Computed example of a mutant assay.
Amino acid sequence: MLQTARSSITPGQIWLDTKGDRIQAHGGSILAVDGVFYWYGENKEKSTPGSGIWHWGVRCYSSTDLYNWEDRGLIIPPDVNDPTSPLHPQQYLDRPHIIYNERTEKFVCWIKVMTPGEPTQRSTVLEADSILGPYTEVRSWLRPLGMNAGDFDLAVDPTDGKGYYYFGRIHTELICADLTDDYTDVTGYYSTHFPRKQPPFVREAPSYFARDGLHYLITSGTTGYYPNPSEVAVAPSYHGPFTVLGDPHPDDPSRTSFHTQISSVFKHPGKRDLYIALGDRWLPHYTADSSAALKAFEEHFGQEQGGDVEPMAELTTIDTSQAAYVWLPLRFDGSMAYIDWHEEWRVEDFD
């Protein structure tokens, strides 16, 4: 059934595409190509409790206004026939990020992948001539710099086209690594940031953006799908040094980033200063503050380090097929970036 056209963004509410189906683009990002916005992310339509399905490929939607999204299908379909493929539905495929390489004229997609029961987190890299694919694997099960590579973001310098890869070195720190000229690997040059003792304090889900000559990262604590306080940091260069400025959600008493984990920040190309934090509300019915999740994860990893591991109890039922989206504009005060709550907001309200 066709949907009535939308004229605003309503964070946290169910978002349907133009056909009336629930949008499935989790852990997502937006790329603008020739005046059209493309929103892509993890397709979780089959990831219901007990299904054993983590993902069903990468789905993409297109729009000209950021409100109404047309389903463009699976740009990276699941590989249902090969259980050893990083694209198999039971592999933990997360957070696709796509950048365009002007030198090679290729769209390059990196994906984080983890095999159930194994601690190693690796990357798979694909290329396509079009944002909508088809994509071809060029590197599979990559361990960048020989490290376990978790949540990540990609950045391209608009002046020289150099690429950068921000990723979490699992349960340790955040890495900024230079990409090769074709964006399909790392060069070996890297810097380290935000060393922390253990989860939930280790940073993950890095979201990069640049503004007024400064380089920003918004990161999450490490509590799985359970929301926690975000942290914004700023640096004079891609490789830092980063200065932590604090929680960008100071008006959220629950200290859960409005029950959201930010996956990326999108700079609207037609607006002077509109930056949009794209977030996932992985647990839309979870209303507790962050203290329960932070305490549970801290105790769990303390036991793990001490050798006395107890299974960590689930705090609530996880059904990522029902996850919601929270998109909010950033507000700047000097170098600090804030994210205020809006029940409803419009792109047209920004210069």
Rank of each mutant, 00 (worst) to 15 (best):
A32W: 04
Q261T: 02
F107R: 12
S230Q: 15
A235P: 10
T180N: 03
T317L: 15
F258M: 05
E314K: 13
H268E: 07
W282F: 12
T219I: 05
D160Y: 12
L126T: 01
R6I: 11
W345E: 01
P77W: 00
D65P: 00
W56L: 01
V265P: 03
M312I: 07
K44M: 09
M114K: 15
S85L: 07
T260H: 02
R143Q: 13
D212H: 14
G240M: 11
G117C: 09
L274Y: 04
Y166S: 09
G27V: 04
F107H: 14
R103D: 14
I53K: 06
A205F: 03
Y135Q: 01
G146L: 07
L74P: 01
L66Q: 02
E310N: 11
R255M: 06
G307A: 10
G279S: 08
E204W: 06
G270Y: 10
I262F: 13
N228W: 02
W39S: 03
Y275L: 04
H215I: 10
A210W: 07
D129A: 08
F209S: 03
F258Y: 15
E70S: 15
A324V: 12
W39V: 04
I262C: 06
F297C: 09
S47I: 05
F350I: 02
D319M: 06
G213S: 11
E173V: 07
Y286Q: 02
Y92H: 15
L214A: 12
S7D: 15
E299I: 03
I339N: 00
Q121H: 08
L93R: 05
T256L: 07
Q91T: 10
E105H: 15
E343F: 00
S230R: 05
V108W: 09
I276E: 03
I170L: 14
N101S: 12
I53E: 01
Y190I: 02
G246P: 09
H88M: 04
L87M: 13
G270I: 02
P49D: 08
K46M: 11
I98A: 03
Q198D: 14
Y238F: 15
P158Y: 12
P284K: 03
D153V: 04
W345L: 00
V156I: 15
R211T: 12
T172F: 08
G334I: 05
A323D: 09
A323G: 13
L87A: 12
V186N: 01
T115F: 12
Q305I: 11
V113F: 09
G168F: 06
Q91V: 11
W54L: 03
Y61C: 01
T192F: 03
T222R: 05
N228Y: 01
D34Q: 14
D151N: 08
I75K: 00
D349S: 06
T84Y: 08
D160F: 11
F152G: 01
K112Q: 15
P199R: 07
I111P: 06
E314N: 14
D273E: 13
D351C: 03
T180Q: 02
R203M: 11
A235M: 07
G50A: 06
D178R: 13
Q13C: 06
S191H: 05
H55T: 12
N148W: 11
S207I: 09
P83N: 04
H342I: 00
D340W: 00
D34H: 07
P250V: 10
S263K: 08
E304D: 06
C176Y: 03
